[in-house]
Amino acid sequence: MFNILEARDLAPGVRYVRVEAPKIARRRKAGQFVIIRATSDGERIPLTIADSNAEEGWIALIVQGVGKATKTLNRLGAGDAIPDVAGPLGMPSRIERFGTVVSIGGGVGTAIAYPSAVALKEAGNQVISIIGGRDSSYVLLEEEMRAVCDEVYPTTDDGSYGYHGFVTDKLTDLIEEGRHLDFVLAIGPIPMMKAVAEVTRPHSIETVVSLNPIMVDGTGMCGGCRVAVGGETKFACVDGPEFDAHLVDFELLAMRNRAYAGFENTRLDEMDQECDRPQLLPVVPGGSA
């Protein structure tokens, strides 16, 4: 069993969960994830390691409740325990001294981008961070990002906070202002990552995205997480999850992620009937599908 040391809300339906996992805390690198099961008969779901502390022996997860597994996890608190945490999994982020890099996080994607932003800064890059959310409550980790990045631009779709517009609008502004950008890391809903890829493509700015296909084992055994990159089939759990944004087939990814849409809705309906306070929470624009 893995003990939960701390759990608190970050935004509506988004929780920060700190789990005791000393070995993973020591081994993990930015960009890697774990596969967890929240209950003994639960689904195996992948979650990025958002932060860790090797001395204190914990890892932090930032979880958006979108379906049964994530919502079950998000109901747990300090003192609870979860049966399975396997990791670290996946290839670490490519961390190099690129020059000026932009880290773009959309909704809970910011949590996934955060550790890479930290590592990119440590590697000597000038780091610009764009944090997007539907409205002010979904702009995550702004303080944390400010502590490590050179520039931070919160954006909201409705203009309730920060820059009024999508993360891609802010990125376009930066490019049009003549800023020289060497590398872009974009993590968030699929339509957002696709849009970022289209913004940077004409300028040949190297761009990496972190893909979120449906996974089962996370070790390269099932092939369920396969994605098409540059016309080749890759297993995101072992070959990724980060890939060259200009080569990813985002349409395929979006379609594959809808494979169980009907099933998941039934599960959620059942879950909402079971619990006292219905938990149908708003989802980040674009959703994870």
């Binding site: 089962v216 099932c222 092939g223 369920g224 396969r226 395929l252 379609m255 594959r256 809808r258 494979a259």
Partner: peptide
């Protein structure tokens, strides 16, 4: 081969 509905035996059986 990546269409929804195409499984590896490993995934289906797992």
């Amino acid at each position: 081969e990546n269409l929804v509905g195409v499984y590896s035996a490993n995934e289906f059986l797992t």
